[in-house]
Amino acid sequence: MSKEFEIVREFEVDATPEEVWEAITHGTGAYLWPMEAPEPKVGGTAAFGSTVTAYDAPHHLTIRSEDVGIPIQSLNQLEHVIEARDGGRRAWVRYVHSGIFTDDWDNQYDGASRHTDFYLHTLREYLTHFAPRPVTFAQLNGPESASAPGALTEVERALGLAGDAAPGDRVTVRGPREFDAVLDYRNPYFVGLRTDDALIRVFGRNHWGAPVGISIHDFAADADADVNETAWQVWLDKVYGQTS
């Protein structure tokens, strides 16, 4: 049965409204994934065939789609309201994700709500530590076995994360290679790792019946998306006992 939903978040960030605006409109690959930037006008086109319904740089952006293209959702809208704080040195952001889920409402809402928190945290990490550096983006998913209930725990163990490691801790990570990082996010659903040049995001989508996934936001000048994707895919497949 179809039912409306609304996910509202508000936060402040150490960035100007202009920097926030740039991050959410310039292809968004720095904290989400590369996509079509919104056409800068009301009525303009935006990602996935959506339409710009509010455009007031750098304060108000709304994008709406009434043809989402997936069977579980018939309407999707994303709204950002941005205001200056501390004389323009900081920004306050109100983010509203709303729409209509047409099936599996509780599960879809839970997943969307928890993903929202993680994505907005990644936005703040980008603005605080990396903006305006350009990003090289890669993403990948584990095999079918990565959908099992304990799949995210397997990845955490393989990464070498201690059970009591908490956000803010410096950790030595055993990924495709060993590297040092800050554990910037951790809960039962997601893991975030920040190095001097990258944000590595681990998505425990097994909680919603999909495989665990990883995205790499690489800000190094010599970053190579194909190399990152291949290295992490080989590593993730090995975590779940898959070999080529």
Rank of each mutant, 00 (worst) to 15 (best):
Leu32Tyr: 15
Arg201Pro: 09
Asp103Phe: 09
Val93Arg: 00
Asn107Gly: 06
Ile72Met: 11
Thr62Leu: 02
Ala231Tyr: 05
Glu125Val: 13
Leu159Asp: 02
Asp104Tyr: 15
Gln73Pro: 00
Arg133Asn: 10
Val96Asn: 03
Ser244Pro: 15
Pro40Leu: 15
His129Ser: 09
Ala54Trp: 00
Leu32Asn: 14
Thr195His: 05
Ile200Gln: 04
Ala162Tyr: 07
Asp169Thr: 10
Asp222Gln: 12
Thr28Pro: 15
Leu161Ser: 01
His26Ser: 14
Ala112Pro: 04
Ser145Gln: 09
Pro188Ala: 15
Glu144Trp: 06
Arg90Met: 14
Ser145Tyr: 07
Gly142Ser: 13
Ser145Ala: 13
Leu120Thr: 05
Ala91Pro: 09
Glu178Gln: 13
Gln233Leu: 10
Gly163Phe: 12
Pro58Met: 04
Thr16Ser: 07
Gly29Ile: 03
Phe137Asn: 01
Ala23Ile: 03
Val182Thr: 06
Pro58Ile: 06
Val191Leu: 09
Ser215Met: 04
Ile100His: 02
Arg9Ala: 05
Thr230Cys: 14
Phe179Ala: 07
Pro132Ala: 15
Val81Asp: 12
Glu36Arg: 13
Pro71Cys: 04
Pro149Glu: 02
Trp105Phe: 13
Asp164Arg: 08
Leu183Lys: 07
Pro71Ile: 09
Ala30Leu: 07
Asp103Leu: 08
Trp232Phe: 13
Thr136Glu: 06
Gln242Gly: 13
Gly241Ser: 10
Tyr240Asp: 15
Asp110Phe: 08
Phe48Ser: 10
Trp208Asp: 08
Glu36Met: 11
Leu161Gln: 00
Thr62Glu: 14
Asp104Gly: 09
Ala37Thr: 03
Gly192Tyr: 09
Asn141Ala: 11
His129Asp: 12
Ile72Lys: 12
Asp67Leu: 11
Asn187Ile: 14
Ser244Ile: 14
Leu152Thr: 01
Lys41His: 08
Val234Gly: 08
His121Leu: 15
Val8Asp: 11
Thr45Tyr: 10
Gly44Leu: 02
Ala166Phe: 06
Ala57Asn: 12
Val155Gln: 00
Phe137Ser: 02
Leu193Ile: 04
Asp67Arg: 13
Thr136His: 12
Gly29Thr: 01
Gly204Tyr: 00
Glu19Gln: 14
Val155His: 00
Asp169Asn: 12
Gly160Ser: 01
Glu18Gly: 05
Thr16Asn: 01
Gly27Thr: 04
Gly88Glu: 02
Gly49Phe: 15
Ala210Ile: 14
Val8Pro: 13
Leu152Gly: 01
Gly168Trp: 04
Pro132Lys: 05
His60Cys: 08
Trp232Arg: 03
Phe190Ala: 06
Ser113Ala: 11
Asp226Val: 10
Ala162Thr: 11
Asp103Pro: 08
Asp117Glu: 11
Leu127Val: 04
Thr243Val: 12
Pro40Asn: 09
Thr122Ile: 10
Ala231Gln: 10
Gly44Phe: 02
Ala15Glu: 00
Ala30Lys: 07
Pro34Arg: 06
Glu229Asn: 11
Ile63Gly: 00
Trp235His: 06
Arg114Ile: 13
Phe11Asp: 05
Trp21Ala: 07
